[in-house]
Amino acid sequence: MGEDFQRNQLKELKETALPCFQCGVCSSSCPVFRVSPELNPRLSVDSIISRGKVPSEGNEWLCAYCLMCDQRCPMGVSLAEILMVIKNISAREGKAPPDVIESAESLMADGCQSPISSRSEKQREDMGLPKLPRANPADVQMLFRATGAAEVVELNRKAVEEASE
């Protein structure tokens, strides 16, 4: 499943990126490039078009997904969306950052991105805020498994363990 998934995604990416003529307005508009030039949206796209590969350095995870590149591209190429697909590919290679995996695990556990503490529940109560209805955890986990996220989380957990051995 993994390799087919990647081949198809790459083929689609290449078509999406094709109108890019490397003007670089994406990079000059990128707030992250301004402070960390290792994220260069223009070069990520160049790697896909000219080498048919996602860049190997893993810098796609530096994209803040602010969509300024998407806004300004004169050819309508959404660099942010391309980087999002690259992140999906990278995650399937076990290269997702640990904090991202942790957030996904938190969502899997209680349907919420930031863990819900008893302190925050108490604070809501003190302010007279209603107790918010929660999703059935079994439903949340079913969707997580059926859509591939549980597999990706597992794969990244293993990659971390292997790296620490």
């Binding site: 991105q113 209805p133 999703a135």
Partner: peptide, 24 residues
């Protein structure tokens, strides 16, 4: 108020799995 989950957040869940993001 309804029993919503996280939206989910694009930079974490969507970055891991686009299908998971859109389904939630």
């Amino acid at each position: 108020d309804l029993a919503f989950t996280c939206c989910p957040e694009p930079n974490t869940v969507r970055a891991l799995s686009d299908d998971t993001w859109i389904t939630f």
